[in-house]
Simulated assay, not measured.
Amino acid sequence: MPRRSAALTRTRILEAATTTFKAQGFARTSVREIAAAAEADPALVIRHFGSKELLFLEAMRAGIGPRTVADVPLPQLGRRFVAELLDGDVDTRGVFLALLRGSDTTEIGRRLRSVHEEEFVTPLRTRMTGPDAELRARLAAALVGGLLYSLWVVGDEDLLAADHAQIVERYGALLQELLTPTEPTSRRR
């Protein structure tokens, strides 16, 4: 059998890890399993990535959400973001679930918090105005997290079967109200 280059071996290990982690999560995946899928020695997995946890973080680097946060005008973001989540690809779901399942380990928990802050809260906050923009950005992230939890963790069958247009309209309106309130918060009671 011809010898593979180190770069090719690393790429194959990373591809095998990404697929396996998305399907099984962090805890249920072993280094030996990844090595077998990559047709590599388990020692090479550790040599290339240092540990299973570091390999996981590299494999899940893709992020967990649509890139719409920075790309869509703020007044249209609520509905558009919800629509993209509902129509999202299997990869986004797999990354989200893998990160969530592994979040009890220190580095993976840090990565999940980092993704939350860097890919959602901070980009939103920089686009929002008002004295309570920080709070509204965090509430928006919590609202989106609730939808992901219901769809992908709990697997709410009624919600999964519901008309996407109706979910986009209703849930998107809730998200939009946090992003661009129709009434100044100082007047609310």
Rank of each mutant, 00 (worst) to 15 (best):
V121N: 03
W152G: 01
D104F: 09
F120N: 02
L74R: 02
V82M: 00
A98V: 06
T122A: 11
G146H: 01
D163A: 11
W152V: 01
R111H: 12
V144H: 03
S114V: 05
G102S: 08
I108E: 01
V121L: 06
E134Q: 15
G146Y: 00
L124R: 00
D104N: 08
L160F: 02
A98W: 02
R80H: 09
A83E: 15
Y171T: 08
V153N: 02
S150Q: 14
R110F: 11
I108S: 01
R80Q: 11
R170A: 15
A133Q: 01
A83Y: 01
S114L: 10
R79C: 11
R79A: 15
A141F: 06
F120E: 04
E117W: 13
I167H: 05
R101K: 11
P75R: 06
L86P: 07
D71V: 09
R111N: 05
P73A: 14
G172A: 12
A161G: 12
I167Q: 02
A162G: 07
G94V: 05
L74G: 02
T106V: 12
R113A: 13
V72T: 08
F96Q: 03
L160R: 14
G172K: 07
G88K: 02
F81T: 06
L112E: 10
A141D: 13
D87N: 12
S114G: 10
L151Y: 08
P123K: 01
A83Q: 13
D158M: 04
R138Y: 05
L77H: 00
G88S: 12
R111T: 12
L100F: 14
E119Q: 15
A98N: 01
D158W: 10
D89W: 10
P73C: 11
R111V: 09
D132C: 10
P123E: 03
E84H: 13
R125M: 10
T92A: 09
E84S: 10
R138M: 10
L135E: 09
T92C: 03
L135Q: 05
P73Q: 11
A162E: 10
E84C: 10
R80D: 04
L112P: 02
W152I: 00
E157R: 14
G88A: 15
G145W: 02
R111K: 14
L151V: 08
D163R: 13
G155D: 03
D71H: 13
A142L: 11
L74M: 14
L143D: 04
F96M: 01
L74N: 04
P73K: 10
R93P: 05
T92N: 08
R101V: 01
F96L: 02
E169I: 01
E107G: 11
A133M: 03
V90H: 10
A137D: 00
L135A: 13
G145H: 05
W152S: 00
F96E: 06
A141E: 12
E169H: 14
L97V: 08
M128T: 00
E134T: 15
A161V: 03
V144F: 03
D87Y: 03
A165V: 06
L86G: 04
A142V: 12
G130W: 09
P123C: 06
F96R: 02
T105W: 04
M128D: 00
A98Q: 01
R136T: 05
L112M: 14
H164L: 08
D158F: 08
R101T: 07
R93G: 05
G146M: 06
D156T: 07
R110T: 09
T92Q: 09
E157Q: 11
L135S: 07
A165Q: 13
L139T: 07
S103M: 07
A83I: 07
E107N: 12
Y149N: 11
D91Q: 09
